[in-house]
Design a protein around this nucleic acid. Structure first.
Length: 467
RNA sequence: GUCCCCAUCGUCUAGUCGGCCUAGGACACCGCCCUUUCACGGCGGCAACACCGGUUCGAAUCCGGUUGGGGAUGCCA
């Protein structure tokens, strides 16, 4: 059995999107799983729309996602020769033919067919031209496209598919697809298939929206004497609303997600778990995912994307970050809002905040830990008012007496003097010091702030209550 | 219209040959416990075989049809 070779073949005309991510990951995973190769091929035949910046961005996103490709990236444009040869070879045996029908003629044909209740397919006018007629038109320089003579004959095309029963199409139900436009450029159908053949691709994982295309490509490759790659047509990735993935329904580009600070692991988790059953919750690395997935049993029904699930994974990964890794991220997030802290401070902050942030930007909720003048929300101020100035005067005096950095000692002393206890004791202090009703362990917070920090904030609260 | 694909809890799915399925798991959600907060963790709960026929002693599972979604029928990829 020959080695498995898969590929991800984006056209460099845009950024990597969620649909791309799924296809790329599945092809990568299948290759890894089977001990094969995973190739990256840029389908850059549309030179006018292809841009170097997208090639670079696509590569960067792939690496960010942990999808390293084997060998050097391939470029479809480098195979122009083979595409031409393939067409010539098909033309020789009349399996491809020039079509001189005009756009308006074809529209008319379609209307006519539909009105008669027939499928609106190409009626084969130019397929039935004699060789002489054909040559005469070509010599006269008439504009033409090239079509594949699929519909012409009886017989069937079988698309081999590992995920389902092989799909059988009757040739008469298929059309004669255009493979060369009137401007002489190829449509996606031919180069895509030829490249797979010459690149030695053995397996193609793609959405089932390609099923009919696969039929055309299988027919073409087999006509040329190639063995068509085995397909794994999986169900489509849908948006959150169950409709097709579109920009509006959350089809973010990977670039957007990265800009939002998403961890690649979170995207991996959310993506791979779609269409796969019962992957243990603790399969957190891509290797672990690989181990617990069976690509050959990937679901053939469509699946829904969930941003919420992805961000939940992100939070899980964030919680698990040790302070040493969290610290630089904290600095970075704060720096984005023009707050600069040094490394030591960042590490100290990371140690108390770890496990309290769902997204990196949540650190902004705790600005009061860094700056005593940071305002407190009205709702929380209300809690401070209910505690009252008397309470905070006691708090200040006991803080001074005990130093305040021993949470237990301080609060015990305060409890005795003020008579406050439980939530009524802890909550006002939490809000006064952190600005938030929820957050990290107070015993750590007081150490982080130090005696001065505590007193500054208590004084600031007292000033607030005076107004 | 014609052809092709798909259809189990809110979501992702288990369900090999029909009986062990009054349909299992995970996530989400809800409740309780733990916790000075949040989270984690523990326990419990809610919740689905799209519909209609047929075959059968017995169907989520097989067959037919219907409905719904998707794709093709594009000089998009």
């Amino acid at each position: 059995m020959s080695k498995v070779v898969t590929r991800f073949a984006p056209s460099p005309t845009g950024l990597m999107h969620l649909g791309n991510v799924r296809t790329a990951m599945l092809n990568w995973m299948f290759a890894r799983k089977m001990g094969g190769k995973f190739l990256l091929r840029f389908e850059d035949t549309d030179q006018s729309r292809s841009e170097q910046q997208y090639i670079d961005a696509l590569k960067e996103d792939m690496l960010w996602l942990g999808l390293q490709w084997d060998d050097e990236p391939l470029f479809q444009s480098a195979h122009a020769e083979q595409h031409r040869e393939a067409l010539d070879k098909l033309a020789e045996t009349n399996l491809a033919y020039p079509c001189f029908c005009s756009e308006s003629q074809l529209n008319l044909d379609r209307k006519l067919a539909t009105s008669r209740g027939l499928p609106p397919r190409y009626n084969g006018r130019c397929r039935e031209l004699s060789n002489d007629e054909r040559q005469a038109k070509l010599d006269a320089g008439e504009t033409h496209t090239w079509r594949l003579a699929v519909h012409a004959d009886s017989g069937e095309v079988t698309v081999p598919d590992l995920l389902r029963d092989n799909v059988v199409f009757l040739r008469k139900d298929l059309d004669d697809p255009v493979v060369v436009r009137s401007d002489g450029t190829f449509t996606f159908l031919l180069p895509n298939a030829i490249d797979d053949a010459v690149d030695g691709i053995t397996h193609v994982l793609r959405g089932d929206d390609h099923l009919t295309n696969s039929a055309y490509q299988v027919w073409m490759l087999e006509s040329l004497g190639y063995t068509a790659p085995v397909c794994l047509h999986h169900g489509l990735l849908l948006g959150e609303d169950g409709a097709k993935l579109s920009k509006r329904t959350g089809s973010h580009s990977v670039a957007d997600l990265r800009a939002e600070g998403l961890f690649p692991e979170a995207l991996q988790q959310a993506m791979v778990r779609l269409g796969h059953p019962n992957i243990p919750e603790d399969a957190l690395s891509i290797e672990a995912l690989l181990e617990h997935t069976d690509i050959e049993h990937l679901s053939t029904s469509s699946v829904r994307w969930s941003n919420e699930a992805m961000w939940r994974w992100h939070t899980k990964f964030l919680y698990a970050k040790p302070a040493s890794e969290l610290a630089p991220l904290l600095r970075q997030s704060l720096a984005q809002h023009d707050i600069d802290i040094d490394e030591t401070q960042a590490l100290a902050l990371a140690e108390i905040l770890g496990g309290n942030l769902n997204r990196m930007e949540d650190v902004l909720n705790f600005k009061r830990l860094l700056d005593a003048s940071e305002t407190i929300s009205d709702e929380n101020v209300q809690v401070l008012k209910e505690a009252g100035a008397v309470f905070f005067n006691h708090a200040l005096s006991t803080a001074k007496a005990t130093g305040g950095t021993d949470w237990k000692a301080w609060t015990n002393a305060l409890k005795e003097i003020s008579g406050a206890k439980g939530k009524g004791l802890f909550m006002p202090l939490r809000i006064a010091l952190t600005g938030q009703a929820h957050g990290p362990e107070m015993s750590k917070v007081v150490v982080f702030l130090g005696a001065d920090g505590i007193q500054t904030r208590l004084n600031q609260v007292l000033g607030l209550l005076d107004d």
